[in-house]
Design a protein around this nucleic acid. Structure first.
Lengths: 267, 267
DNA sequence: AAATGTGAACCTATTCACAGCT
DNA sequence: AGCTGTGAATAGGTTCACATTT
């Protein structure tokens, strides 16, 4: 409550919940759009709708940053854009390097999102000598051997890995050794890094698999709870084509359906 | 719990926590690697290490699927691969469509992860007539006008959007109207969909911004953490220059940094 | 009157620690 | 002896609902 203004230890950036941090970019994007349309103020309700969250969550999120709204009015768009940008560290310019300029890497380099406010592609790096010197998104690709030098000279602390899975850990180790402490990993592999280094991963097939899980459930659970597993139009559509089914419990004697799980899925 | 469903319906898929679902693909990948090396069994400790989580979490996750391990021994690799695949719905073949075959779309189509077990690219679709017919990843691009027909004929229930932000919502609406109920969105925009439709988003610049947040914090709060790894180069660059700074508190009277929030980060 | 900011209630997820099975 | 499976404890996140402020 407003009571003790002296009660200040918090509020600071100290301890903004991770879930909140992950939503700040969303708010920022929505606010930027409003800003471009010269909208002066916005309510939590409106902004929340634009960002795809509910308004209570948004207000709670903002409360961790400080009291940036005006009761009865809403939030000043420009002011909030600034505050969130600052909180996210986007009022400074982060040089990044991208390692692995294959199909995906090249696409990412060309992708506008990378060059968005706050980030600058300092270098593209690849292990294929035939790529070296070729410009991708206007930036000449450099050879992997120079990785350490490039990081050093550009003061890079954020790296993007878009190599094949097999090369990712090795590249990661070199990045970290050279001083990079935040990594965005597009390779489908788990990276191990020392404490103090942040890794975020973006994984295509994982996302698809999560969707498949829910999709399967939608197909399976309408109406019949007990036996019927895959009824209905959507289900037929979803289930009909080519069941691939890996061979189950190859090793005999497996406990398998211990009391509950039927046997092996209709297939 | 075994056979008695006293206060919990089935051990079955009912109510697997979302956080657990999101990790199953990770376990599956680690298990597949073990399987390829013909490792017969694995302990929760080992598997957890391979998947980058801790073992208690892994055991808890598996407990939602059923009792698939053997005390004193561990888990049978092949058997677990099958159970998780089934749980994720990967024992069937999901036809997917991808809309927007630009740089990113083409890269994704070429990306192995898409063609991984359980998924099949049924069609690539684009709004640019000059793209139509061109093969990408061996699949000829089709025109956006045929979207509905393609979805219908192939029984597609999962769609991938890799269009520019401006086109995404429109494409999404058409996909949903045609029967797609799970969407993986690469466009940097919030999609609104009716209930029952799942959307997952993969957003480059959001991930970078989250990293920047943490990176900024690291740079700011070291009172003297060894200057070895992140010498001035990164630190200096991170802490001071190139302020992009949108003009703050434009509207006067704004409460702004009222004696509460001292400009964080001594810039 | 309108909309923020926030305690409190609620729900979800993680971690602990150990009983129970092989 | 070893390792799973899981209640209990803890931590983290979301939603409610309303007092407070403009």
């Amino acid at each position: 409550m407003a009571t003790g203004r002296t009660h200040r230890p918090a509020t600071r950036s100290r301890g903004i919940p991770e879930a909140t941090v992950a939503r700040l970019p969303l708010y920022l994007r929505a606010l930027t759009a409003l800003s471009e349309r010269s909208v002066p103020t916005v309510s939590s309700e409106e902004l929340a709708a634009a960002a795809g969250v509910n308004s209570a969550k948004l207000r709670k999120d903002f409360s961790y940053l400080g009291s940036y709204g005006t009761r009865g009015v809403g939030y000043d768009v420009e002011y909030l854009v600034y505050q969130i940008s600052r909180e996210l560290g986007l009022t400074q310019d982060w040089p990044i390097v991208m390692v692995g300029i294959g199909n995906l890497g090249a696409a990412l380099a060309n992708y506008g999102g990378f060059a968005s406010r706050g980030f600058r592609v300092a270098a593209l790096i690849d292990a294929d000598p035939s790529m070296v010197g070729k410009p991708v998104a206007g930036i000449p690709v450099q050879y992997i051997d120079d990785l350490e030098k490039i990081i050093e000279e550009n003061g890079v602390s954020i790296g993007v890995i878009a190599t094949p899975a097999g090369a990712a850990q090795q590249v990661c180790d070199r990045l970290v050794a050279a001083g990079v402490s935040s990594i965005l990993n597009f390779a489908p592999t788990v990276l191990s890094v020392p404490d103090g280094v942040d890794v975020r991963k973006v994984d295509l097939s994982i996302e698809l698999q999560i969707l498949a899980f829910h999709e399967q459930r939608k197909a399976g659970e309408d109406g019949g709870v007990g036996g019927a597993d895959l009824p209905s139009a959507a289900a037929v559509r979803a289930a009909a084509p080519a069941a691939v089914a890996a061979s189950p419990a190859s090793t005999a004697g497996r406990k398998g359906p211990d009391g509950d799980v039927p046997a092996v899925m209709p297939a």
